[in-house]
Measured scan of single mutants.
Amino acid sequence: MQIFVKTLTGKTITLEVEPSDTIENVKAKIQDKEGIPPDQQRSIFAGKQLEDGRTLSDYNIQKESTLHLVLR
């Protein structure tokens, strides 16, 4: 499925993911596309910070959902 990741600069990245993917996985995909190390990424969805060990389905993130990426 496709999800979108919006950065603070307003750029939107499209990722191909599975509901079973962990947040860690997703951060690795963002690193592949953007070169941002996962330890600098904070992902926010529906106002909640997403934890690395959880999966997209844990957070009820579905296709075409938009995550927000904040850098630390």
Rank of each mutant, 00 (worst) to 15 (best):
M1C: 04
M1S: 02
Q2W: 13
Q2P: 05
I3F: 02
F4E: 02
F4W: 06
V5E: 01
K6Y: 07
T7H: 03
T7W: 12
L8W: 15
T9M: 10
T9K: 11
G10H: 04
G10W: 05
G10A: 02
G10F: 04
T12K: 07
I13D: 00
I13N: 00
I13E: 01
T14C: 07
T14K: 09
L15I: 12
V17G: 01
V17H: 00
V17R: 01
V17C: 05
V17A: 04
E18D: 13
E18N: 13
P19F: 06
P19G: 07
P19H: 04
P19W: 06
S20V: 05
D21R: 01
T22A: 02
I23A: 01
I23P: 01
E24F: 14
E24V: 07
V26M: 06
V26G: 02
V26L: 13
V26F: 05
K27S: 05
A28K: 15
A28V: 10
A28P: 00
A28G: 07
K29A: 07
K29Q: 07
D32W: 09
D32S: 11
D32G: 08
K33N: 07
K33G: 06
K33Y: 11
G35I: 03
G35V: 03
I36W: 14
I36F: 11
I36E: 06
P37M: 09
P37Q: 09
P37G: 09
Q40M: 12
Q40L: 11
Q41M: 15
R42Y: 15
S43H: 15
S43V: 15
S43Q: 14
I44W: 14
I44A: 03
I44T: 07
F45V: 04
F45G: 02
A46L: 13
A46M: 14
K48L: 12
L50E: 02
L50C: 03
E51A: 07
E51P: 02
E51I: 10
G53I: 06
G53Y: 12
R54T: 05
R54G: 06
L56K: 00
L56W: 00
L56G: 01
L56P: 01
S57K: 12
D58H: 12
D58Q: 07
Y59R: 01
Y59S: 02
N60H: 08
N60T: 04
I61N: 02
Q62M: 10
Q62F: 08
Q62R: 11
K63P: 15
K63T: 11
E64L: 12
E64R: 08
E64I: 02
E64Y: 15
L67I: 14
H68I: 15
H68Y: 15
H68V: 13
H68F: 14
L69H: 02
L69C: 04
V70A: 08
V70N: 04
L71F: 09
L71Y: 11
